[in-house]
């Protein structure tokens, strides 16, 4: 693989910083929560709200904007052992499925997310259209990512080798 150019690396670094910062925030909120209840005997509730919002954003951001193929959990018995030429067609097929379905449902998703401005979060009074807007980011970025995969597979530029060579070194957790 060629080394990505500097601006690309900077962008990637920024994209990855978002979930990292959110996780650090979540960690701090929990510490504050325990401290306020156990030590100060004056419990707070807003920490929970920050944590659930951070959790939502970590996953949807992390699996779209800052995702690399090796970060995604897939069933790789067949996919991993397929010949590159076959795998190329697998990639064409699944990216068509994903782009088609997510694109088709995008207007409905937009409708839902914008509708949710009707409710606000309990402690911080953030409107839910903002909380859930990450789903729109997720859907749009996923469509673009998989359109890119589709194009790469169709033009024969990418057979998906990079997505399988790292099997097992992914540090996801059960």
């Amino acid at each position: 693989m060629t080394t990505p150019s500097r601006p690309i690396r900077t962008l990637r670094g920024l994209a990855e910083a978002v979930p990292a910062i959110l996780l650090a925030t979540m960690f701090l909120c929990f510490i504050i929560q325990v401290f306020m209840r156990y030590v100060m005997n004056s419990p707070v509730g807003w920490t929970v709200e920050i944590c659930v919002i951070a959790w939502l954003w970590i996953l949807l951001w992390g699996q779209s904007v800052s995702a690399e193929e090796s970060d995604e959990i897939r069933f790789d018995i067949v996919y991993g052992s397929a010949r590159p030429a076959v795998r190329r067609w697998f990639r064409v097929a699944f990216s068509v499925v994903l782009v088609g379905i997510y694109a088709w449902s995008l207007p409905a998703l937009w409708d839902f997310v914008t509708f949710m401005k009707i409710q606000k979060t309990s402690y911080l009074d953030i409107r839910f259209n903002w909380v859930y807007s990450i789903a729109l980011v997720f859907s749009v970025v996923s469509i673009l990512r998989y359109a890119w995969i589709f194009w790469g597979a169709l033009s024969g530029r990418d057979t998906g080798q990079s997505s399988i060579e790292d099997i097992g070194r992914k540090d996801f957790s059960e």
Binding site: P43, G45, S122
Partner: peptide, 26 residues
Amino acid sequence: SGITMRMPGGDAWQFLGEAIGANPTP
């Protein structure tokens, strides 16, 4: 006062806990 009392999450519920004099926690 000073009694840590579990109340359901959300500020309406937490306020209910305060309204009877307790320290509410979700």
